[in-house]
Design a protein around this nucleic acid. Structure first.
Lengths: 126, 126
DNA sequence: ACCAGTGTAATAGCTAACTAGAACACTAGT
DNA sequence: ACTAGTGTTCTAGTTAGCTATTACACTGGT
């Protein structure tokens, strides 16, 4: 996996797992790959994986069962909140950054639409 | 100034100065505040300021004149490119992150509009 | 010649993030 | 009892980022 060297790996792994859950690759109650397996897959040390998982466990998104594995919580309330937090955070970040560039809200929307249009044109479709 | 403790301070300072230029608080040819002054204002060490400025100088956005100060380049070409890079980067980041959350382009625009609407409602206007 | 204001560079010390490796604790199957 | 597969913890060592401090180099005004 590719990491942004400007932000801590353990944090990017947290976000990665959040996304896997949101997208549905990891459903509520599902077992997360073993820490040693994740370490191999993401080419990162077990301790770094553990640090990310510990944080997700602390947040209640994952549940740890010693000797068995780590599992996605079945508390859909918590998962729904997480999803909202992630998406809101993304939009808020964009909004703040663009506002700091002197852009008005309407311009932001226009800029995003423009970006999407250009991107569609310049890419091969699936 | 407030920094995100997840990303290097020197990098955030680079972005800060980029924004000051884009917004027009720093015009082409203008002198950037002295490094020791910036260090005080942003409450960071001079070396950290210097690291950020060195990078901006390397990119041609600032021009250093020893004994006199650091100045915004008068090469509007370079500044225009920088502005485009910053904005495109912001949009691209948002796009990629939301796409990784399983969102289609049209949904992204809708989500942003919705976010702006909610934000306007919940805030006091200036 | 001096001095105040500027950028630049170098040293030393601290902490957070990451790695490597080993050990420990628990579960389930044989 | 053993073993394989899990999570958990600990120690040691490396590196990047940041701070503090000092020194050096240049400019412009007096």
């Amino acid at each position: 996996m590719e990491f942004d060297d400007k932000v801590p790996i353990y944090f990017q792994i947290e976000q990665y797992i959040d996304r896997e859950i949101i997208v549905g690759n990891l459903v509520p109650g599902a077992q997360v790959p073993a820490v040693r397996q994740l370490a191999l897959t993401l080419t990162v040390n077990v301790n770094t994986i553990q640090r990310a998982l510990t944080e997700l466990i602390r947040e209640g998104i994952l549940v740890s069962e010693r000797g068995k594995g780590n599992f996605v919580t079945t508390d859909t309330q918590v998962l729904a909140q997480m999803k909202k937090r992630v998406i809101q955070g993304e939009l808020a970040g964009t909004y703040d950054h663009l506002a700091a560039l002197g852009m008005a809200p309407a311009e932001m929307v226009a800029a995003l639409e423009e970006y999407i249009k250009e991107r569609k044109g310049g890419e091969s479709h699936d």
